[in-house]
Design a protein around this nucleic acid. Structure first.
Lengths: 209, 209
DNA sequence: ACTCTTATTGACCAACGAGTTAGTTAACAA
DNA sequence: TTGTTAACTAACTCGTTGGTCAATAAGAGT
């Protein structure tokens, strides 16, 4: 408020702008939600004017699209590598992957982004479609291949891999929504790491022949 | 469009209004989302004027609150009865309860309502809080007591009941979001009944001593 | 110093939609 | 028939905000 060093000095830094804008947008979208966030506020937080945002993005929705693109892709690629590289029994890898997910959920703003995508997928189908194709459509088959590998080697009993994958991932989705939607309004904190361990434990046991 | 019988005849039917308004609101909220729905449209679909809505509801948000209250409370009570009445081994009851949930998800608009609550809990904390207290805060302990009963009788092995409940419910939440957020934009349909059966199956197996 | 390019902005607008109000009409009782 | 009340609406207010544009200034090159 009384911060005198906040006097805006016009600067031309076209390279740095987009990421600054996205960072500000992520902050505000997760704090107040997509609709309640005024582009004006994104601008001030990013240290430029609202009009300048339109030099770098087409409209409000494309901010969200860019955010999803920048954030989620990387994690899936890492997970894919983990799975591709791995040899031997798959049970430890299942544990490792779930713990990896839990870690990302605690450290990054993935839960908020997931909530945003779910919330806005009606009003902005492009965003939902992108998420469906690039996150869900990649993550689920990845896990599914893992289960199938375990079944082929006799490590796991025969089950429907598609349903099993959803049972494996469901609790983590619950965790994400818990963190992003319910903790902010007073729900007791949920230990995602512990949930991941327990989840992996239950599913692996359930898959013993 | 050319429906001549649509000439609006003013009627005074105060008893019927609220439910008609809520029905219209539910339709539109789930179709277009909460923010994108104009109160004007709710009014026309309900067959009255926007101003009349304010005779029955305080504001837009209270429409959503009323919707949640009317829809979710009943189911939980039913589930509570099922659990209270039940005797003997709990495994069959777990299956029955999950299948009951799946049924409600397929037949009613619960998935859409859940998505709405999640989406709007930031902008309208009262709604989120209500859901937290009356749905989550009732449903989870209910399931938890069931698990604990099974553990006490020796039917289940000892596990953390809180985490286990979340692993049990998570897949159903995934199902709800799948139906409400992703199926409308082209995701392959998900058989919730089959998911419920599989989910119950996995968890019960995982809980064998 | 002086251009020239382009990043940046202040000021604007059009549209929109939640909520209000003053007036109108249905229903019913006396 | 008429008066009264409660249900209802047309038409308005008013704050809000996404998006635009002409004007401005920062920096690079000369």
């Amino acid at each position: 408020m009384t911060n005198q060093s906040e006097i805006t000095i016009r600067r031309r830094r076209p390279k740095a702008r987009p990421t600054e804008i996205l960072a500000a947008a992520l902050d505000l979208f997760t704090e107040r939600g997509f609709n309640a966030t005024r582009l004006e506020d994104v601008a001030t937080r990013a240290g430029l004017s609202k009009a300048a945002i339109y030099l770098y993005f087409n409209d409000k929705a494309s901010l969200l699209t860019a955010l999803v693109q920048a954030t989620v892709g990387a994690n899936i690629t890492i997970a894919g590598d983990m799975i591709g590289r791995h040899q031997g029994p798959v049970a430890p890898l299942v544990r490792e992957l779930l713990s990896f997910m839990a870690g990302r959920m605690q450290e990054t703003r993935m839960p908020d982004l997931i909530k945003l995508v779910i919330s806005e997928s009606r009003a902005h189908p492009e965003i939902g479609r992108f998420y469906l194709d690039n996150v869900i459509g990649r993550a689920l088959p990845l896990f599914q291949s893992l289960i199938e590998r375990g079944m082929a080697s006799g490590e796991f009993r025969k089950v429907d891999p598609r349903l099993t994958v959803k049972c494996l991932v469901g609790p983590m989705l619950l965790g994400a929504i818990w963190k992003s939607a319910f903790e902010p309004i007073g729900a007791e904190p949920l230990d995602l790491a512990a949930l991941a361990v327990h989840d992996a434990d239950l599913i692996i046991r359930a898959l013993q022949p």
